[in-house]
Design a protein around this nucleic acid. Structure first.
Lengths: 206, 206, 206, 206
DNA sequence: GATGAATGAGGCTTCATTCAT
DNA sequence: TATGAATGAAGCCTCATTCAT
C-alpha cells in the first residue's frame, strides 16, 4: 500500500511549510529575536509539533539555512554547467545568483542582517556543514575562473583573489538591491557587474 | 577649580575602557550571547555601574559600534583628503580601510558574524544613526569616484555602481583575511584590488 | 460462539505484556523519568493503544504495583497457610518474601528508589487501595505473631511492634541484597533473620 | 571592616531559609511534584534569586538532603561517643535516631515517600556523595556492634548483618510512627527496640 | 557615585493525553 | 480497534534591569 508514501509526502509538506514560515520570520527578526512560538503560530502548528520535525530551534534555523543555500549552490552549478564559453560561464554565475536573490529576497536579507553563524557552541556540527558547503561553492567559483585563465581569456592572476573580487561585487550589488528593495530589477545590473569585473573602471587612454 | 574637569576625564576614561572590553567580548561571542555581567566583569566594574554610562545593553552595543565605525570613516576621509590624484585617492581609500581592518581585526569580525543590526525595534533611533553614517560614507566613496570620472581617468559609469563594486571587493578581501586570520598581510592585497578594480580581469588581446 | 472469550484472553495477554514491560522500565528509571512513549515502545504497542488498557500513566503505574504486590501477598499467605507450627510460619513468612524479592529483583528495586506513593493528588483512590492492601498484609503478619504468642512460643509483646520489627529486618536485608545485587543468595540469610528475631543478639551469660 | 562578614551571615541566613522551606515542600509533594516557583514563593524570594544560592533544582534538593542527613549522622556519632558501655551505645544509637525523626518528622517523611535517589543522571557526583555518606554511617553502626562483640556482650555474628537488622528495626518503627503521626512518642519505643534486638521475641522455656 | 543581590518576565523544551484516520 | 501525529500546558532556567546600601 502507498499509505506510507502519502504519509511521507504529508510529512514533507508540513516540514516545508514550517521551513518556509521560519525563513520569513528569521529573516524579519533575526535568530535571537524570533521565538519558537512565533514560528509555530505563523506556520499554523502547535509549539510541540515543531519538535517532531526539528530537534531544536537552532536545528530548525540551520536546516532552513542549509537547504536554501544548497538549493542556490545547485542552481548556480547547474546553470554554469550548461555553458561552455568561459566568459559566459561567469555571466551565468552572476545571473543565477542574482536570480536567486530576487526570488528569495526575504531569505537573503538574513545575510545582510547576518545572524548566520552567531549560533551557540551546541550545534558545531551543523555550523561546520555550512562552512564546508560554502567552501565548496568558493572552490567552484575559483574553478570557473581557472578555466578562463587556462582558456587564455582571463589574466594569469591568483584565482582565489579573482573569486574573492567577483563574489564581493556580486554580494555588494545584491545587498544594495536588498537594502533599497525597490526600483530596477537586480538582473539589470548583470552587464555592469560583468563589465567592471572583466574590464575595470579605468578609462582607456586614447 | 578644575575638579569638574578631572571628573569628566575620569568619566571618559572609564567609559572608553568599558567600550574597549565590550568590543572584544561582543566580537568574540556575538550580541545575544554576551551578558552584561560578562562586560562588567572584564571591564572591572560592577553591573550597576555600567548603567551609569549606558542606558541599556543595546545602547552600549550601538555606541561601541558607532564610535569605532566613525573613527574608521574619519581616518579614511583624512587619508584620502591629503591626496590630489584621483587614482591615488582610490588607493588611499582601499589602504586606509585595510589598515583599519588589520588594526581592529577583533572588532571587524563582528561584521563577519554580522549581528550588527539584529537589534530589537526599541532602538530604532540608534539604528537609523548607523545606517545614516554608512550612507554618508558611501556618498563619500561615490564622490571620490565621481572626481575620477570628471578628471577623465575613470569611465563614465554610474558612480553608485562603481562604489558598490569597489566596496564589495574591499569587504570581500577583508572578510577572507579575517576568516583565515593568518599568512600574508591584508595590505599586500592592495595592488591586486586596485588592479582588478581599474583594469578588470580579462586578458587583453594582443 | 467463544469469540468474546478469545477476545478477552487476547486483551488480558496484551495488558499483561504492557504491565510486564512497564514494571521493568519504571524500576529502571523511576516513575517521573519514564515516559508513556517508553512503555509503548518496549511493549510493542502504540501510545494511543495503552490508553485503551489504562486510564492514565498513573493508573498504569499503580495497577502494576498493586497487582505485583498482591501477588506477593498472596504467595506469602499461601505459603504460611500450609504450615501449622508458629515458628515455622514465621520462617515461611521470611522465606516467601525473600523468594519473591529474588525472583522480582527488578520490580522490587522500585521500592529502594521508592517513587511509590509520590503520586499526584489525582489518584487518591488508587493510593488508598495500596495503603489498604499493605495494612491487610501487616495485619496478617501480626496475626501470625499473635498465634505464636497464644501458642506460648513468643513473648507477650505488642504484636504490632513485633510485626514492625520483623518487617524491618526483612526489608533491610532485602534492600541490602538489592543494593549490592551480587554474591550470596538472599535466601541464605533466612536462618540469620530468624535467629536474630527470635533470640536477639545478646550473648547469653554462662 | 566586618561588612563582608555581615554579608556572609545574611547570605547564610537566606540560604538556610530556602533550604528550610524547600525541605518542607519537597517532603510534602516529592521532588518532581515540587516546582521551583513553589519553593521561591514559600521562601519569599523570586525564582531567579534561588539560582544565586543553588545551581539547579536538583542541587538544591541534594544539598538540603545532604546537610540534614549529615546533621543527623553527626548527632548520632556525638551521642554514641559520650558513652562507654557497648549496650548503652546501642541505646544511644536508637535514641538519637528516634529523636532526630521526631524533631524532623516533615523532613524524614521524604524517605518514606522515598524520592531520594530518583534524580537524573546529571547529578551523579551529588548522588555519590550521599551514598558514600550513608556507607560511612553504616560502617559506624557496624563498628559499634563490633565493639559489643569484642566486649563479649554480643554474639559472634557478622556485624554487617547485625547492623542491617538494627537499622531495619529502627527504620521500620520510625516509618510506622511517621505514617500514623499520632499518639505516643517515638522515643517510648526505645526499650522495645532494644529488647527485641538484644533478646529476641521467643519466649524462654522455663 | 558605586555596588551587586534581587527581581520576574519570557524563552526553550518535554510529554501526558486526545482524536482523526 | 489500533495508531501516532498533534496539542499546549507547564517546568526549569537566564539575564537585563533596578534599587537599597
Amino acid at each position: 500500500m502507498d499509505k506510507a508514501e502519502r504519509k511521507e509526502r504529508e510529512f514533507n509538506l508540513r516540514r516545508a511549510e514550517i521551513l518556509e514560515q521560519a525563513g520569513k520570520i528569521f529573516a524579519a527578526k533575526g535568530f535571537h529575536n524570533t521565538t519558537v512560538a512565533d514560528i509555530a503560530g505563523s506556520s499554523g502548528f502547535a509549539v510541540g509539533t515543531l519538535y517532531q520535525f526539528f530537534e531544536s530551534k537552532e536545528q530548525l534555523y540551520t536546516v532552513m539555512l542549509t537547504e536554501k543555500l544548497n538549493m542556490m549552490y545547485a542552481r548556480i552549478r547547474e546553470s554554469v554547467a550548461t555553458e561552455a564559453d568561459a566568459i559566459r560561464k561567469i555571466e551565468r554565475l552572476v545571473a543565477s545568483q542574482f536570480r536567486f536573490v530576487e526570488e528569495n529576497a526575504e531569505f537573503c536579507s538574513i545575510f545582510i542582517r547576518g545572524d548566520h553563524l552567531s549560533l551557540s557552541e551546541g550545534s558545531a556540527a551543523l555550523r561546520k556543514q555550512m562552512v564546508s558547503d560554502y567552501a565548496v561553492h568558493v572552490s567552484f567559483t575559483e574553478g570557473v575562473l581557472r578555466e578562463g585563465i587556462c582558456a587564455g581569456v582571463l589574466k594569469e592572476m591568483d584565482p582565489q583573489m579573482m573569486a574573492a573580487a567577483l563574489t564581493g561585487i556580486i554580494n555588494s550589488c545584491a545587498s544594495k538591491w536588498l537594502a533599497m528593495m525597490g526600483g530596477a530589477s537586480l538582473m539589470s545590473n548583470i552587464p555592469f557587474v560583468i563589465d567592471i569585473f572583466l574590464e575595470g573602471v579605468r578609462k582607456n587612454a586614447q
